[in-house]
């Protein structure tokens, strides 16, 4: 019997079917561990940004003249925070991706990439859900206008997903081979918070700093998100080609690194 035939007997036909099946199974599993069975962990996806955005909104209550047209503090925070949340969630999980999950790899057809893809799908769904909820609340309370260019806003979340997902492949490999790096990744995520571009607009920044910040791909992505949200935002500091090249380079090296990890992984 050939390998294909025996795979067929196992109810699949080819790589893609197996991938889809495995990712679906992982999604169900991830939902069970996070959402399911006496666990309200998923509520934090919404509650955490909700708390922060509410605090910011309270701080800025009555702060009506911001001088930026429709760029108001509450939607500004909501967009910045939810895009950052996606970044942080996927980066931080890169470190722990393998810890609780080695039993999954005890089944030959489960690839590390499948585990990461399933998680990414859950994160993007969670973030889009909470961003929609937060923005709706803000609009209802008249603290924000609806997104001016909704498709660009949604695009920005997916661009962030592509960027942080490919980045997380590299980070995962780095964490696997260096425990020091694994320890540093959480503080680094928070320390990077002020400069990654979630909470300022590039046009507010003096030129000499802006030239440096432009080398951070995330600043382009946040600008894109704000262009989606605000009528008065623009695309001056968004370079699609730069983001694309970053994602491709990270993706290629990330997949190579991931293969090295799998090769190296010891399932004791």
């Amino acid at each position: 019997m050939t390998a294909q035939a025996s795979q067929g007997r196992l109810g699949g036909n080819g790589m893609l079917t197996v991938r889809a099946r495995v990712i679906w199974a992982l999604l169900m599993r991830e939902m069970q561990t996070r959402f399911g069975r006496n666990n309200v962990g998923f509520l934090w996806i919404v509650i955490e940004p909700l708390l922060l955005a509410s605090a910011i909104a309270a701080l800025h209550a009555g702060d009506t003249k911001h001088g930026n047209g429709d760029i108001r503090p509450v939607p500004f925070m909501i967009v910045g925070y939810t895009v950052f949340y996606l970044f942080r969630a996927i980066v931080n999980r890169a470190e722990s991706a393998m810890h609780g999950n080695t039993p999954l790899l005890y089944h030959r057809q489960v690839m590390i990439l499948d585990v990461l893809i399933a998680r990414a799908i859950i994160e993007i769904a969670g973030v889009l859900g909470s961003a929609t909820l937060l923005m709706s609340i803000a609009v209802l309370l008249d603290a924000a206008s609806p997104p001016a260019r909704p498709l660009f806003l949604i695009l920005a979340y997916f661009v962030m997903l592509a960027y942080v997902f490919t980045l997380s492949l590299l980070l995962m490999a780095a964490c696997h081979f260096s425990t020091v790096f694994a320890k540093l990744i959480h503080p680094l995520t928070y320390l990077s918070l002020p400069i990654t571009g979630g909470f300022f607009m590039m046009r507010w920044i003096p030129v000499k700093y802006r030239d440096i910040l432009e080398w951070l791909p995330t600043t382009h992505i946040y600008e894109l998100a704000r262009y989606g949200q605000f009528q008065n935002a623009n695309l001056d500091y968004v370079d699609p080609l730069f983001i694309l090249v970053c994602c491709l380079v990270q993706g290629v090296f990330g997949l190579i690194a991931l293969d090295r990890v799998r090769q190296h992984l010891n399932l004791h």
Binding site: T17, R21, Y106
Partner: peptide, 21 residues
């Protein structure tokens, strides 16, 4: 173990059944 400890036996069985189609 081929099982996720935090999940029930039944959930683990469901997962394995799914990945093997």
């Amino acid at each position: 173990s081929c099982f996720i400890f935090s999940l029930s036996g039944a959930d683990n069985v469901r997962f394995i059944a799914r990945i093997y189609g």
